[in-house]
Design a protein around this nucleic acid. Sequence first.
DNA 1: CCAAAAGTGTTTCCTCTACACCCATGA
DNA 2: TCATGGGTGTAGAGGAAACACTTTTGG
Lengths: 234, 234
Amino acid sequence: MPLPEVSQFIPHIAYDSVVFGFSKGKLKILLMEYHDTGWFALPGGFVERSENLEDAVKRGLNERTGLKEIYLEQFHTFGDTSRYRPEVMRRILEANGHLIPENYWMLDRFFSIAYYALIDYEKVTLMPDALSDSIAWYEIDKLPDLILDHGKIVQKALQTLRENLDRKLIGGNLLPERFTMNELQAVYEAILGQKLRRTSFQRKMLSLDILDRHEKLFTGKSHKAPYLYSFKTH
Amino acid sequence: MPLPEVSQFIPHIAYDSVVFGFSKGKLKILLMEYHDTGWFALPGGFVERSENLEDAVKRGLNERTGLKEIYLEQFHTFGDTSRYRPEVMRRILEANGHLIPENYWMLDRFFSIAYYALIDYEKVTLMPDALSDSIAWYEIDKLPDLILDHGKIVQKALQTLRENLDRKLIGGNLLPERFTMNELQAVYEAILGQKLRRTSFQRKMLSLDILDRHEKLFTGKSHKAPYLYSFKTH
DNA sequence: CCAAAAGTGTTTCCTCTACACCCATGA
DNA sequence: TCATGGGTGTAGAGGAAACACTTTTGG
């Protein structure tokens, strides 16, 4: 695959996405590992000349996860000069066997507009891009070192997610359509990083009047079967 | 003054600032009026090649208000293609008597990183820039029409300000060092757009343990003199 | 019947609200 | 002494937290 031409994209502008998923009781995010470098990074990309910013982010996420409808939230734009480390991108491109032209646009200084996404872990089909060995899930508290300021971006994403937890009905976007109260509580606990009281949590969620109660889920275990819930649509 | 050269600035990237001040019981923001167009816009600018984003915003605000220390908060980046209206900037430049070169960089598509600032109205000395007739205060609910999406930017700034009102101790940045409880309440009411109860407000503020109480303020009016307060520095 | 987990009732505590009252000030 | 606005005391309403209790399930 040839190097992207600057004529296709807007120079100096990139996005990075922190994609949250929930599985086996753990909060996870997606990371790319670049060929032959051992370097990890957030999935990101560039904006085409006539493309809306948010459409660019959705396009990139669709290419890597196969998802069409994605819950997205912009949370910060990173524009410090300390992000300007042309040797990092140079090494990534060279490790892919590219010959880099003089003054190549991808080695310029970039401003990164950061988004977080919330997705249903089960619905994702991961597809690495041309520069990457892999794209995979990593537990939020067991991340490898990331390039540039991507570690800081993850921390800011997590902080914003916590602040928005009550205001924006985040929980549902990380679960399948129908879920038990226990599963929802596990999501909240994973995001906040602390245990919550079972009875208080249940009452609080029910009092918000945002859940529909459905049939019970029989698991074969010898105890009362929990109800399934879904978020109200309107 | 000659047209700025692209070599000095990063193309495609701009910032806009919503500068809040409080005076005579009203919440106000700063607007520029451009020469010979009747057009109003937020104070904004470009980022120099080796300049941190936030330093660029502070530089721009310092040039227009004379203030050195400014409370700044980034709240959103606007990147829709609908913002790309080169004829707007062309008219502004031409109204200033400039001859515009072919493919001039200021007529390109721009992404705008928006900040809001909170400042002490009394400390400001307003200075218009080269393109503007004036820079002046406008009451937040009596704004003229603004160019491009600047109206949307103001709305988003106000919304973010309201959401952050409790979390970030905003009130103090809009007042002088020392103020009465009544003045602080007036700031809150102006931001929220609604009346608050006097006694509840006082108790709430005091219970937060963020205020120091100082001497009384004697105004010569025939009633009990209110205490002056300041925000704790710690 | 038992163990385990889900769901609900109840008591307690704390906070916010509403309203009243007292205080300080200058005319 | 009065009018005005500032500050605080207090009783009641509302909601969160803690704990106990009941319910449901399969072994």
